[in-house]
Design a protein around this nucleic acid. Structure first.
Ligand SMILES: NC(=O)c1ccc[n+]([C@@H]2O[C@H](COP(=O)([O-])OP(=O)(O)OC[C@H]3O[C@@H](n4cnc5c(N)ncnc54)[C@H](O)[C@@H]3O)[C@@H](O)[C@H]2O)c1
Ligand SMILES: NC(=O)c1ccc[n+]([C@@H]2O[C@H](COP(=O)([O-])OP(=O)(O)OC[C@H]3O[C@@H](n4cnc5c(N)ncnc54)[C@H](O)[C@@H]3O)[C@@H](O)[C@H]2O)c1
Lengths: 205, 205
DNA sequence: CACTAATCGATATTTTTTTATCTATTTAAA
DNA sequence: TTTAAATAGATAAAAAAATATCGATTAGTG
């Protein structure tokens, strides 16, 4: 289909185009997009070639058409049903984040094992007892399990989620999960990202 | 030096080795590391070759030596001085995250523009008025600006941080910042990551 | 109306990252 | 002591991603 870096950039173009669209412009070129997003025009052009939109030489792309096309292309997030495990700092933050709505992420359940958290509400989501997870997931089919629990519990909970039939895991704990081939896993390693940044700072000195 | 994916994986090996070390084992092979982390042995071996540790055939690496070496290698995070802008959901979460301490990230200042937040404390960090940012940063040299503000403010604040002399930006807003060449930028696109995951779910169906 | 400069889109090249192959070494068992 | 199996490490190949090249097209200009 298209590469991971490309999908991420497409989501950035999408937001950018909405901004430009709002300003009333009708056409925009790769050159301009690239300049404003600190990228190379060739890369933008290549990324955008996954859409069905053809640009006009000398003018660029029709902004509304392009944005529409990206809307359609990025619609694979629509109606993805998720449950989040671990209503801690990060879980709380993700639950309150409005940006996912735009892509259609639908968080159906939130689970935790801390009695102080169970039955509280976070942004309209009731925190449920992890003990009842299997029961809830047997009644409502869930696509993605979002793991925002401490590292040591991540693998065990991942196994349980897989048993419950989730198709994918979105894991924020700094561990690589051991998971059957047919289950999709996306690891988010924020602390690792910090190290990448730190190493780059060291390099330039 | 070494690639971005490699640094991220090294941070994962590091945590994993500490775990195995605690269990009392003395040696470990690439094969075993790979099996437990769902990776290929060749990749693990290649990643670990950046360390000065040589493995013994048939046995693998001396765990303590390897962990020590990774400690040293991953030390480029040590003493990195940062300020965080935007004490909202995500900022709060990052401030309370203990995992960065291990890598030596030192968040010196937290800024926000919301009067309700200014002068409150988050995990021991006083939230300061963004108006006084330049003043604070002129007194204490800061390496990294962490941006956890809404998208629309990110570029403006990035510019201010650069004026104040930060060497790097760690940006969590879904926008690509326009920044001088000599400033390092690391973009974290969590919503984009969700799209990557969603697209992979679509593919396997 | 012709000319110029900008930009698209297809194709090609380069670079980066991952994966494979092969040889030498070492340990543990025969 | 010999032999077989496992694995490191060097080198090579493949795959993925980024970047470059170039002809075709078109809006604007003289
Ligand atoms: N907070 C961050 O900014 C941040 C950054 C990078 C990585 N992470 C990672 O994200 C994960 C969560 O971090 P956090 O800061 O939100 O931690 P946290 O301690 O604030 O939250 C963890 C939550 O998980 C719950 N939990 C623990 N065990 C559970 C179980 N068995 N079943 C159900 N719920 C359980 C806890 O009750 C708690 O609410 C960690 O793995 C951390 O390494 C967090
Ligand atoms: N929360 C998440 O899980 C999440 C996920 C993905 C991306 N993000 C991105 O991270 C950023 C922050 O998200 P959030 O959910 O924490 O938002 P938020 O609204 O909770 O927090 C933003 C904070 O920034 C402060 N702020 C706004 N303008 C400011 C200014 N000019 N100077 C100083 N402070 C200012 C606000 O007062 C607020 O405290 C956004 O760009 C968002 O897109 C967040």
């Amino acid at each position: 289909m298209c590469s991971e870096p490309t999908i991420k950039r497409l989501s950035v173009y999408h937001k950018y185009l909405k901004e430009v669209e709002a300003s009333g412009q009708e056409f925009i070129s790769c050159t301009k997009i690239a300049k404003n997003l600190h990228l190379l025009p060739i890369q933008v052009r290549k990324d955008l070639s996954i859409t069905d939109i053809v640009g006009k030489p000398r003018v660029g792309y029709h902004i509304k058409d392009l944005r529409d096309s990206l809307d359609r292309f990025l619609s694979f997030g629509k109606g993805v049903k998720a449950c989040l495990i671990g209503a801690g700092n990060l879980g709380y933050s993700l639950l309150r984040y409005k940006g996912f709505d735009e892509y259609g992420l639908d968080i159906k359940f939130v689970f935790d094992n801390n009695p102080d958290k169970i039955d509280t509400y976070i942004d309209g989501h009731q925190v449920l007892d992890i003990k009842n997870m299997a029961e809830h997931l047997s009644k409502t089919e869930i696509d993605v399990g979002v793991l925002t629990v401490p590292r040591v519990y991540a693998q065990t909970l991942a196994n349980k989620l897989v048993e419950c039939g989730v198709k994918a895991l979105w894991n924020f704990a700094p561990i690589r999960l051991l998971i059957p081939q047919n289950v999709v896993v996306k690891h988010e390693n924020i602390a690792g990202s910090f190290l990448v940044l730190a190493s780059r700072i060291k390099q330039i000195r």
